[in-house]
Simulated assay, not measured.
Amino acid sequence: MSVKVAINGYGTIGKRVADAVSCQKDMEIVGVTKTKPDFEAKLAVRRGYKLYAAIPERVEVFEKAGVPVEGTIEDLIQNADVVIDCSPGKVGAENKEKYYEKAGIKAIFQGGEKKDVAEVSFNALANYEKAVGKRYVRVVSCNTTGLTRLLYMIKQNFGIKKVRATMIRRVVDPKEDKKGLVNGIMPNPIALPSHHGPDVQTVLDVDITTVAFKVPTTIMHVHALNIELEKDAKPEDVVEVLKQEPRIMLVSSEDGFTSTAKVIEYARELRLRYDLFENVVWEDSIAIVDNELYLTQAVHQEAIVVPENIDAIRAMFELADKEESMKITNETLDIGKFQL
């Protein structure tokens, strides 16, 4: 079976998911949408994707700009089995009511939507089975994905009593030049704790409290975690466990990884758009004091959720079990191959 996939929103996440779907033998892209005929719309056409207008009333805008469209979002979903909604936060819920429910099509939403937009919030490692056969699935946000992967591995191997996590967040994605934080640090939100802990709990049963701060950088998030373990462990035990998971990459300051800038510089040598689908954990940050684990990780917000979208499709259409789906996704996207 080859699942026909539509991408509604060929932007930061959408274009990456489209390329990832194109690498899979059991699924195919039938089209992507844009709201306006900008450079990304033109690149989509150049890359061979059929382009549709995300807002039906704007078809003429595309035509006047000389950018060919095949039709509207309504036309696109008629040719698809599932739509991956990569539109801005809260717009996905509107699209569900306006288009997807009426068309009777399955849909995957991103972490910017509230959890009630879908039947289940999803992370491949933590709760793949809960998405099997579902019609609406929400892939949790980049920060939640990064936290959940790591905490799942720790919980499975050592048990967790409580998690305290601080997110140092990039303020915007690199291309978002109309907004940002020029010179300052912003509590996000000011009233603590942040939403990330409850979001993790939608996919993983764990006691977690989080706080977050926005800083004037665009390339990655950084998480500082303090995890109270149930079982005794040594730092080397944690290292061995994390090495077992391809979607977690261990790096060291001894290899020159002294900041997120160096991590991204390494990623530029590896993949298109310097995409890092893996959590990046500093091995030399791992310490245990009074059976509390401390570590630091970085999350590439533009790419980390991409493999989760692929696995969500397989779960929804019952194409493979968790282990097989993650194995295929990892192999097709070269995940877990760049550990130094």
Rank of each mutant, 00 (worst) to 15 (best):
P68E: 09
P68H: 14
E70C: 05
T72K: 06
I73S: 09
I73V: 13
E74H: 07
L76T: 04
Q78W: 03
A80G: 00
D81S: 00
I84C: 01
D85Y: 04
C86Y: 10
G89D: 12
K90W: 08
K90Y: 05
A93T: 14
N95R: 06
N95T: 07
K96V: 11
K96I: 06
K98T: 13
A103T: 12
K106F: 01
K106T: 00
A107G: 11
F109L: 07
Q110P: 14
E113C: 03
K114W: 06
D116M: 10
E119I: 07
F122C: 12
N123I: 07
N123Y: 06
A126M: 09
Y128P: 02
Y128M: 06
E129L: 00
E129Y: 02
K130Y: 10
K130M: 08
A131W: 02
A131Y: 03
V132H: 02
G133E: 07
Y136H: 02
R138T: 11
R138P: 10
V139G: 12
V139W: 13
V140I: 13
S141C: 05
S141Q: 10
C142F: 08
T148V: 02
R149A: 01
R149I: 04
R149L: 08
L151I: 02
L151S: 08
I154D: 15
N157K: 02
F158I: 11
G159D: 12
I160A: 11
K161P: 13
K162L: 12
V163T: 02
V163K: 11
A165Y: 11
A165G: 03
M167I: 13
I168Y: 08
